[in-house]
Design a protein around this nucleic acid. Structure first.
Lengths: 182, 182
DNA sequence: ACGAATTTTCAGAAATTTCTGAAAATTGTA
DNA sequence: TACAATTTTCAGAAATTTCTGAAAATTCGT
């Protein structure tokens, strides 16, 4: 379980980026290692490869399971738990995307919905609520859009992402056919 | 500068969420307050309203300026710097989106591009590189897509986001006309 | 150029997050 | 059931991030 300098660099980088993606350094490293390493790894192997404590690995795996980013395997005649990254890179990306939507958007939408139920008590509050309503509308739209993207199958998602600047042409099309309807 | 309980709740929430969105608690609070408060605020007002030190406000404003999320104003006969949230909610969202793309995608793309230049030294490395290539391809696609979205004007973006599940129908359309071409 | 107003800086304090390692709990086998 | 292998837990240690406040720097009017 000694990592090539390639893998080392990859793993360390994902450790650094980890916090930006929503998990801590060692969780990022564990995930990176499981991603590049095709064979399943057990907790001891992860601990040794990454030079972190066994306890930390246990906690990290729990978190990765909560994110549904790893899969548990068993080898015949071995009681240890082995892990791999769950599904294709594509699946992983989708999962991260969905989890982040949940964590970054949903709580705010819930709060704003609540706050907007109250009647404003004065001018100041009325103005603040207007602004909050704008934030809410935007985040809700984003949330719906993210959900729609999540539901697309891989083929369509690929098609959409590859469109690039072609998107606006496609929308023009839609806009015209849409207005024609009435 | 005493905040209504509405605003208080909004500000505190954005503080909590701040870390998920890429900045720390007080920066999140400052941004939230500037967003709901239509009048420009100066550093002392922010410090008093949020009960944080003047120094912290200075650092926070510097960060918000780096994110291009605030705008500096001056009032006649007052030497203090006044700040507002920069542009419409829509503009703010676009800016946050772009900044996050830069911070979360670009460094990884750069690293992977580098790593993939090296020839693999053995089977193990070859396999790891395959996985890294997949990650690279995916992130690059995502990056291009994010860029394309950023470049859409507000009207088109709105149209696209409102499509929801209609997206797949639109893509079908495109798929068919695309294959018709050959 | 001086001085008052204002902003920035930054060393150390405080708060928070992450990590370790030993003990407790769980699991599977004989 | 007894026990060895394995995983989980969690109190406290270590590392990291954030915050304060006083001093330094800057800015502007006179």
């Amino acid at each position: 379980m000694n990592l090539s300098s390639q893998t080392q660099a990859f793993v360390l980088h994902f450790g650094e980026m980890g916090s930006r993606w929503g998990f801590n350094r060692t969780v990022g490293q564990m995930f990176a290692l499981l991603t590049v390493h095709s064979e399943p790894l057990n907790a001891d192997q992860l601990a040794r490869a990454l030079k972190i404590s066994r306890g930390n690995v246990s906690m990290g795996l729990k978190e990765l399971q909560a994110w549904r980013l790893v899969e548990l395997h068993h080898l015949p005649g071995d009681r240890k738990d082995y892990f791999t990254a769950a599904g294709s890179i594509w699946d992983l990306a989708r999962t991260v995307f969905e989890e982040r939507r949940k964590r970054e958007l949903d709580p705010t939408l819930t709060l704003l919905r609540q706050l907007l139920l109250n009647d404003p008590q004065d001018e100041q509050e009325a103005g603040a609520q207007e602004r909050m309503q704008e934030v809410y509308d935007l985040l809700e739209l984003l949330d719906r859009f993210a959900n729609a993207l999540s539901r697309l199958d891989q083929k369509d998602l690929l098609k959409l992402m590859r469109l690039g600047s072609g998107i606006s042409k496609l929308l023009e099309l839609k806009g015209k056919s849409g207005s024609r309807k009435r």
